[in-house]
């Protein structure tokens, strides 16, 4: 793996109170690739993902040891402004969470509060096109986002993340609340987006990881068991635990 590293975790240990959620994790995320983080429920996938854009800051008595580097800079120290980081590392959540505003406002809000001064209409339309939602909503940009279907809402949330022109998009089980058809659309979108963005996706759907990711990390009980090319992880994993998990013996 001789590609450019965009995010790196070094000796990362994450704790809720005393309970460690991630233990001594070292991982390098490559630029313009889709990296999947898989593992059974409660293994710390989402916790790890949320450290990459400091979303764990909102959890009381969460603490962090080790370092997270974004383009070579440590981002988990308190002197680093999390707002700056989140501008460059966007996020899509498990359940679609559009703002209870119009479709247009959903997308433009992020750029607007961060001082965007270009053509708003153009930006919104481009983001919707990139998120594969434009044709479905082009006639009703000013109607409420809450009227969209679940799958459309999730693509709107992706459009909202894209609007910030981030370098990385974190996705926390983005399709787990959606039906198979909507899931397929999201997956196609992810494949398309990786040309311009680095995507880290948490999923407990192994087939999904196999379908869309370039690299896969397997976490189990807070430990990074195995990390490598998706192909090799799913065909000839090094570790017994990984094999047991992907063949469905547990999890």
């Amino acid at each position: 793996m001789n590609n450019k590293i965009i995010i790196e975790a070094k000796n990362l240990t994450l704790r809720y109170g005393k309970h460690p959620a991630i233990r001594d994790c070292n991982i390098q995320i490559l630029k313009n690739k889709v990296t999947a983080i898989i593992g059974p429920s409660g293994c710390g996938k989402s916790t790890l993902l949320r450290t990459f854009n400091r979303m764990n800051d909102f959890i009381d008595n969460f603490n962090i040891e080790g370092e997270v580097l974004f383009e070579g800079k440590v981002i988990n120290h308190s002197d680093m402004d999390p707002v700056e980081i989140r501008k460059r590392i966007g996020m899509v959540f498990q359940k679609p969470n559009p703002f209870p505003k119009s479709i247009f406002d959903n997308i433009i809000w992020g750029p607007k509060i961060n001082g965007f001064i270009g053509n708003q209409q153009e930006l919104v339309e481009n983001c919707l096109i990139d998120a594969g939602l434009f044709d479905e909503v082009k006639d009703r940009l000013n109607s409420s986002a809450m009227e969209l279907s679940g799958g459309q809402q999730q693509r709107l949330c992706i459009a909202r993340a894209i609007a910030m022109k981030p370098e990385v998009i974190l996705m926390d089980e983005p399709a787990s609340a959606l039906d198979p058809k909507a899931t397929m659309k999201i997956e196609e979108l992810i494949k398309k987006l990786k040309k311009s963005y680095t995507i880290i996706i948490v999923t407990h759907n192994m087939q999904q990881a196999a379908r869309i990711s370039d690299n896969t990390a397997f976490l189990y009980e807070g430990e990074l068991i195995e990390y490598g090319k998706t192909n090799s992880i799913f065909t000839k994993p090094d570790k017994q635990q990984t094999e047991d998990y992907i063949t469905g013996r547990f999890g």
Partner: peptide
Amino acid sequence: PKSIRLGAFAVGATRWQTIQSHVLPA
């Protein structure tokens, strides 16, 4: 819902921007 706040934070909003634009109106 908390998810609305998280959504706002995720696009680089400060605490006050989140409160002002999303929490208070709702």
